[in-house]
Design a protein around this nucleic acid. Sequence first.
DNA 1: TAGATTTGGTTTATTAAATCAACCAATTAA
DNA 2: TTAATTGGTTGATTTAATAAACCAAATCTA
Lengths: 404, 404
Amino acid sequence: MKIKTGNQGFLRRQNLAGIFQYLYEHAPVSRIELARLTGLNKATVTNLIGDLLENKFVREVGTTIDKRAGRREVLLAINPQRGCFLSAELGVGFISIICTNFAAEVIWKKRQLVENLEPEFLLAETLRLLKKARRIGEKKSGMLQAVAVGIPGLIDQKSGTVLFAPNLKWRNVEIRAVLQKHFETPIFIENEATFAALGEKNFGAAKGFNNLLYISAGVGIGGGLIINGQLYNGASGYASEFGHMTLDPAGSRCACGNLGCWETLASQAALFREIHEAISAGKSTLLKEILKCDAQKLSVQMIVEAAQKSDPVALEALRKIGTFLGVGIDSLIKVFNPEAVVFGGILSVAGEFLLPAIKEELKKRWLLENASDPRLLLADSGSEAAAMGGIAKILQTVLANPPI
Amino acid sequence: MKIKTGNQGFLRRQNLAGIFQYLYEHAPVSRIELARLTGLNKATVTNLIGDLLENKFVREVGTTIDKRAGRREVLLAINPQRGCFLSAELGVGFISIICTNFAAEVIWKKRQLVENLEPEFLLAETLRLLKKARRIGEKKSGMLQAVAVGIPGLIDQKSGTVLFAPNLKWRNVEIRAVLQKHFETPIFIENEATFAALGEKNFGAAKGFNNLLYISAGVGIGGGLIINGQLYNGASGYASEFGHMTLDPAGSRCACGNLGCWETLASQAALFREIHEAISAGKSTLLKEILKCDAQKLSVQMIVEAAQKSDPVALEALRKIGTFLGVGIDSLIKVFNPEAVVFGGILSVAGEFLLPAIKEELKKRWLLENASDPRLLLADSGSEAAAMGGIAKILQTVLANPPI
DNA sequence: TAGATTTGGTTTATTAAATCAACCAATTAA
DNA sequence: TTAATTGGTTGATTTAATAAACCAAATCTA
């Protein structure tokens, strides 16, 4: 059996991947257009497309109706029936599942709330949902091709193990090994925020940006880095732990044990603390009565609603958190100089109030007056960024290795 | 005239570049070894090397003398006579020039002190030195191939312009345009610390690391990022402004206008301030008398010498600065998860005292007990990292496009 | 010391795959 | 109805990697 014979065939794979990519991004598109886009000879494109048609990755979907002279272009598109993809996000309190066809269109999804966060329970439940999704997906769009799972924690890429997920209270859970027993396909395990970054880049607010900083502000602050169009994981997969950057060496203690981590100043918990302190200090606020009944009930949504009614305590708390978010984002911009910053996570629900505060802080701190600072975008959370990021990850792999 | 005809020939260039790279890293090396290293067929290697020999990029330099049976390997190496490279570092108060042969061996270098920092003067002087170096280099090693210049400031890659160099007090100096009038070769303009990072990766302390964080602590704190073996410049070339990360929102004012930038807490200036404050507070120290004559005379070297004599003020100041360096480096590690961190710049002279303090702080703040934290390395400053980084940059370009 | 064996390198034939050029197909313009 | 235009295919050509046979030069061994 031959494993590797130098790199002949490498270029053809490369070209196939290129065409595939253009089909995903610009479909429907004609052969001649692909030749223009890729710089390949049109005969080469005909040849490559022939392969893809033969293997049912692509299909012809009609022609253009132009008024120009000449034969009409035959339009090509990814064949959605070629197979299906599964992606799951395991969150704190929910499991979110997406099944897409081969063209990355969502054909089934479900968001299930869960109480029990034990690995055994959560994995069993995830498995149950994935299997259900698989049945539906395979009936509609053909054989399962790959599975992706996003988890809020530190992941060891190689083994597909969750090393540490503080919010789920998991340590060393060999999730890929468990799933692999039930799925013969490739399985990708990743940090949830990292996937979300990829989702925003491919399907969300930051479509097309190649150097991207994604901030996920919620219980903690996580995120993801897209560098040269690729996810950057770090040497051992632990990059993007933004929340534990030190912002104030004399600050208050973080869950990680250190003092003054960014997320002690600018997370959901920090926002709630501001509100509670204001109430304790006797300031009048719409939120006071609501909390009187149930102090646990506070939510970002509630604070936003209060702020929309011009509640001063809510407004002030959001402004303060926004400012601290701005300080940290500014530091990251100086480190990375991204094209765009996408703000996501639970706190992005309050984007209409946080973004102006963040922007103001960024503007104040920007070093170059003449150069344009990076764009600040609100995450497109409706599209379920993390799960869609899993799909994007699968696509990248499928594209890089078209199984021909 | 044909500019681009698709990507035929692409693979061959790729393979040539690969062989070239191995020759730089492992020379002298035989054809059979190259075939093993690259995975190419030995006939292909013979063929490619034939091209390189014909164009004088490579030469045969003898054979191995093994005790094994079989014909001896013919060893190949880069031909140092194939041309020369120039690299300059414009510093605050000096111009450093290096001329290397085609094998990246230094064949001439000069470090010239300058008083006047005016762009006109400094550029004229640089030009004079570069021209001198060119004469010498071309006599020894053949035609000039490329020029690199490193500058402590923000660079616009595309135009080769220095947008802002606070320490030189430059703004919008179109340096490439000026140099291009005198050199018909490619000219690379880059931030000095960015080049230093590349120098450390290719010729210095971090040889072989592909995900690298280089910290240059001196007047300010700058640095460079190597990601996947490549320099990362950011979307518009302003990445790695580490010194202006905010470490303490209530801190003291930085030259950039913001409060509590990292470099206000952990630069050469911060170190000097600690010493001066200790003296003002009446603490006894070896440094006191020296400074009595000339308060301006303080240098990192002096503080190191005092510390080596166990001077408590010097030791305490270094420990404190080291701790703050550690806090910032820790944040960057959490963002990047590099394989290694290289500590360079003027403060690295005090490495023997700073590194233990930095390490202690990193250890205290590391999130995962089980996983290994990145290595902390002292820059190999003797090799003139910044100028050598320029050479590395040139090589990368030459390798990627072997001019055949 | 004369093969046998081993290893490095070259030559020639084969094959993969991109390009070029000629051609066919289908449409609009004249 | 024919010319012009544009999209796409076909077959010849070219590039370049591989495979296999072979040559070269060394050590091993009988």
